[in-house]
């Protein structure tokens, strides 16, 4: 949430798993709780990973792959806390980071902070990165 807020504050549009899942669970007409992942998402995931990848990866990629396609810049937070927004799958993360690297878009890779001081450094690096991208408040 903090990252999304920062991205917006610097004039950019955040693409995050939280918003995407929020959209999925509130879309009328779908009924496959809790995430409303259907065969459609798993088939869409095949655009990004082969069929022999486990279904959980294909389902994740069906939701997250299109976000990578839309992305014009990326912030990768490594070794994040359990509560920090992520897909919960280290293998899906490998694929996502691979796709981001292939896109050759501006990418900031940072470690998840463990102390207040590290958090300040992280926020500063994110702010510098976002400023470097331009945008309405950059």
């Amino acid at each position: 949430m903090i990252l999304s807020d920062l991205v917006e504050r610097f004039g950019h549009h955040p693409l995050g798993i939280g918003q995407e899942i929020g959209r999925m669970v509130t879309t009328p007409g779908l009924d496959n709780p809790p995430l409303n992942i259907t065969e459609k998402e798993l088939t869409r995931g095949l655009r990004y990973v082969a069929v022999e990848a486990p279904s959980g990866i294909r389902g994740r990629m069906g939701v997250l792959g299109p976000l990578v396609e839309q992305a014009e810049a990326a912030i990768v937070v490594k070794n994040a806390d359990y509560a920090f927004g992520c897909s919960g799958c280290a293998r899906a993360n490998i694929q996502l980071i691979y796709m981001l690297r292939r896109k050759k878009i501006p990418t900031l890779e940072i470690e998840y902070p463990k102390t207040r001081e590290e958090a300040k450094v992280m926020v500063k690096r994110v702010v510098d990165f976002l400023r470097g991208l331009g945008g309405t408040n950059g």
């Binding site: 990973v49 082969a50 022999e52 990848a53 486990p54 990866i57 293998r91 490998i94 694929q95 691979y98």
Partner: peptide
């Protein structure tokens, strides 16, 4: 190996 997620990626 068949069914290795990291392998297939």
């Amino acid at each position: 190996c068949f069914r290795c997620a990291e392998g297939v990626i």
